[in-house]
């Protein structure tokens, strides 16, 4: 599956909380190159999580265009978005959201159930994904038998096992100590550099953002700054 460009044009998104109208995105436009690693920063309420949810097809904009690769998400129904997510996006959450009663391997295998795939092929993919994240020896461990960093690695393996175009990470190191955070960010960099995955990561932490080739600063729903990270030159898009 090839990586995808992401194009957002004049995005508007408002939330209603009771009678109060809360603007989350206010005419935001930007493009993200396929195969790039982009960090999104900004204060709470700046719209960064909303942006991530819109790119991932988890939410719909009030107006504007959202294109990921050849897909116009703003024109898709909820059912179409659900199907699209299963094939083109991998999610990494701050709190991992693993299924506690399943083993690491079973958690990673879950998204593959949405594909018509023989069990042997599924097992092979699961083993590869867990090997990539360095947890080949923890396949049969349940989440409560793993450390926070290991849980997040399982979540990353779950995100990449379907070989998606885009990986969306929402504060992936927000619940981890500094050393484990570094390991997770290096792993994301590896997925970007070696496997050509487009990675969009929301973070509050400047040290985490420094792993991105590009750092977008949002404020009050608009793009405040768009920085290129000289320490991380953009890599050419890879075909996996």
């Amino acid at each position: 599956m090839s990586a995808a460009d992401i194009e957002l044009v004049d995005l508007h998104k408002h939330y209603r909380k009771g009678r109060i109208d809360i603007p989350a995105l206010d005419g935001l436009s930007l493009t993200i190159d396929a195969g790039s690693f982009v960090a999104i920063m900004g204060p709470s309420g700046s719209g960064k999580s909303t942006l991530l949810h819109l790119i991932g097809g988890l939410d719909s904009a009030d107006s504007g265009i959202i294109r990921v690769g050849e897909y116009r998400l703003d024109r898709m129904s909820e059912r179409q978005l659900t199907a699209w997510r299963s094939r083109h996006v991998g999610f990494i959450f701050q709190m991992y959201h693993l299924v506690p009663v399943l083993t690491a391997a079973q958690n990673v295998e879950l998204p593959l159930l949405l594909f018509r795939m023989p069990a042997r092929e599924r097992r092979k993919r699961v083993a590869t994904a867990l090997e990539v994240v360095g947890l080949a020896d923890r396949m049969d461990h349940r989440p409560n038998q793993l450390s926070g960093g290991q849980e997040q690695r399982v979540a990353i393996a779950r995100a990449i096992v379907t070989d998606p175009d885009v990986i969306l990470a929402d504060e992936p190191t927000g619940d981890l100590d500094a050393r484990t955070s570094q390991e997770i960010l290096q792993l994301l960099s590896l997925l970007n550099a070696e496997f050509g995955k487009t990675i969009v990561m929301v973070t509050h932490d400047p040290r985490a953002a420094a792993f991105g080739q590009r750092i977008l600063h949002l404020d009050k729903g608009v793009l405040d700054r768009d920085e290129r990270n000289p320490a991380r030159p953009a890599a050419a898009a890879h075909a996996h």
Partner: peptide, 11 residues
């Protein structure tokens, strides 16, 4: 959260 994550994954 678990059900929300499953839906996010495409279920």
């Amino acid at each position: 959260a678990e059900y929300a994550a499953l839906k996010a994954l495409g279920f």
